[in-house]
Structures are given as C-alpha cells and as structure tokens.
Amino acid sequence: MAHTHNASDRQASIKSIWRTFWILLIVTMVEVGLAFLHLYTGFPGKLLLNSVFIGLTVVKAFYIVAEFMHLGHEIKNLIWTILMPLLLFIWFIIAFLADGDSWKHMRRNSPSAPLPAEKVAPAHGGGNHH
C-alpha cells in the first residue's frame, strides 16, 4: 500500500499474480485428472478421492483469498476479523451433515416411520407442480 511506484516492484507483483494463476490452474487440472482416473480405473477409492478433492479445494480457496484478494498481505487485525467468523463453518458442516446421516439411519431402522412424500411420488413433477 505504501506508494512505491517503481517498475521493478510492479514486475515482481505481476509475476506473483501469474504464479498464483498457474497454481490454481494446475490444482484444477489435477482434480479433473483424478476424477477421470477414478472414472476409468476405479482408483483412488471414493472416500480417498473425495478427501483429496476437499483438501485441494481448500488449497485453491487459500490462494484466491490470500493472493488475489490480498488478505495474506493485510495486517493481522484484519485477517483475524475476517477468518474468525468463518470458523463457525467447521461446526455447521459437522453438525448438519451428521444430522442428515442420522436422519437417514433413523428412517431405515424404523419401518413404522412415515415415508417422506418425495419417496412415493415419481421424480417428475415431485412437489412443485399442482
């Protein structure tokens, strides 16, 4: 932010922008490559594959926020103000996905429970059509 208008600084910052671009592109290509590998060979297994996808998504998110949005170069006060609220997502994800899973098992294990309407209706025009 300090106004240092010199050409070599500018060159360096442009270089780091393109470096981030290559990282994002290569990570995306690795993701698509792994998806194809799984499609044709069944390797890696679905659980491992999905964990890798989520890990690589976080890597991409980090580079977009830290470099493109420049957050990595701001002061700590700002970084923490923005990141702390987002920590709530960790709990949201665990809580809601666990809830969904438990609902599925509850439904499976209690045959007396009423089936949700969507289960009986054919998928065409389910719910939204009058």
């Binding site: 609220p85 997502f89 949201f92 994800i93 996905l97 809830d99 969904g100 609902w103 599925k104």
Partner: peptide, 20 residues
C-alpha cells in the same frame, strides 16, 4: 463474510440432503 454465510448455508443444506 455475510455472503459467504449465505452460500455456505445453501451448500450445507445441499450436503445435508445428500447425506439423508
């Protein structure tokens, strides 16, 4: 940040339905 929570809510709702 607020927009991130909006998108997060939508994606987590999607994930919950998928787990169900």
């Amino acid at each position: 940040i607020s927009d991130a929570f909006t998108f997060g809510a939508l994606l987590i709702a999607y994930g919950t339905q998928r787990f169900m």
